[in-house]
Amino acid sequence: MATTHVKRAFKYRFYPTDMQAAELSRTFGCVRKVYNMALQARTEAWTLRQERVNYNQTSAMLTAWKKTGELAYLSEVSSVPLQQTLRHLQGAFANFWTRRAKYPTFKSRKKSRKSAEYTSSAFRFRNGSLTLAKMAEPLEIVWSRPLPEGTVPSTVTVSQDAAGRWFVSVLCDDRPAMPEPVNTAVGIDMVRNHTLARAISDASWTEMRSMLEYKAAWYGRDLVVVDRWFPSSKLCSACGILRGMMPLNVREWTCGCGAVHDRDVNAAINILAAGLAVAACGDGVRPQRSTPGGQSSMKQEVVPPQRSRAAAQPRG
């Protein structure tokens, strides 16, 4: 069975020595300087020449900047946070080009968050002790909760808030111990429930689905989202006969086969069956009618399977 790795950040307060605070403050300033210079270079390249500058090019720029007399101080801090800020800038531009975010903005000395990110090559973590590059002593961290047993941090982010408090965020694998293997599954039918509809709608289906997907991946489970036009409420879970129109105020109905159905329970049973069918054969659950505009609606999405499964159906 494939192992699901979930990254989780654990944030702690720490109290730097005067020398550590000075080193981190210099690093914050250098990170901000490099980010702004790289953003300026990329902006000019696009504005003047319609040229897209990538991470590798800005990394080469950083090497050149360190060799100048004016910017030689950039070599005095760890190079890793400087490279990481260039990677973050690359990600910001990638989001902009794909229209997922606005154009990147310059970092302000007063308003922007003071932070620096260290990858594993720039820190040492041993026996609960964390030492950053360019520092002789470990940070005095208040370990308010333990890290997951047996994990090794992959990234460490140090920050200082507006009140002057220092924090360290440790990113590591956090896949919890799996419960005993089970083959249980559940079908969920979250907006046509007349009692909970408003509360579920207020919470938003998208947010709820994101939470389900996150937890399913975290626990190595399988989430199948069934097509929203799948007639789960009108389909008899006993004989498979599809009933005609069914107004929302009809909460209970009797099929011609004699089966008496609670609307929501029947829908959940059908959704579960549809989800299990998808997991078993990998095929999509198609609606038994077209959407109002005459177009076929979207097929469900399937999260790569592990063990237990849940099937859910978004409702408009």
Results as ranks from 00 to 15, higher is better:
N249G: 04
E137Q: 13
Q160A: 00
A9V: 09
A216F: 06
F167V: 00
E180W: 08
W143F: 07
D262Y: 10
R126I: 08
C239T: 03
A177H: 09
W218L: 14
A312L: 14
R192C: 07
R13H: 15
D18L: 12
D173P: 03
K234G: 08
K11A: 04
L196G: 03
R99V: 00
K111H: 12
M61D: 12
T47G: 10
A41Q: 12
Q295D: 14
V158E: 01
I241L: 14
W229S: 05
P231G: 03
V6A: 13
S115D: 09
S237L: 08
S290V: 10
R243T: 04
R228D: 11
Q90N: 11
F167S: 00
R13F: 11
E140R: 13
E213Y: 11
N56Q: 14
V31T: 07
R251G: 08
V182T: 14
A311C: 04
N127C: 07
P304R: 08
L147M: 02
A101N: 01
G91S: 07
K67E: 08
S204C: 10
M19D: 15
V186L: 05
P146S: 04
T4H: 12
A92W: 01
Y15I: 02
S204T: 14
Q295H: 15
A259M: 13
V260T: 07
L74D: 00
S112T: 03
G284F: 14
R126A: 07
P287W: 15
E207L: 14
A259F: 08
V226F: 10
N270W: 07
S121P: 11
V6W: 09
S115P: 01
K134N: 03
P304C: 00
Y118D: 01
C255V: 05
F167L: 01
S232T: 03
S120P: 07
T58C: 15
F123Q: 02
S296C: 09
V156Y: 01
A92C: 00
A60Y: 15
G240C: 02
M1N: 08
A133S: 05
A277E: 13
A21T: 08
V168S: 00
R52K: 11
V186A: 11
E44N: 12
C30K: 06
Y55M: 05
W229D: 08
A310S: 10
C257Y: 11
S144D: 02
R315T: 07
L82I: 02
K11C: 02
R192D: 07
D283N: 10
R52P: 09
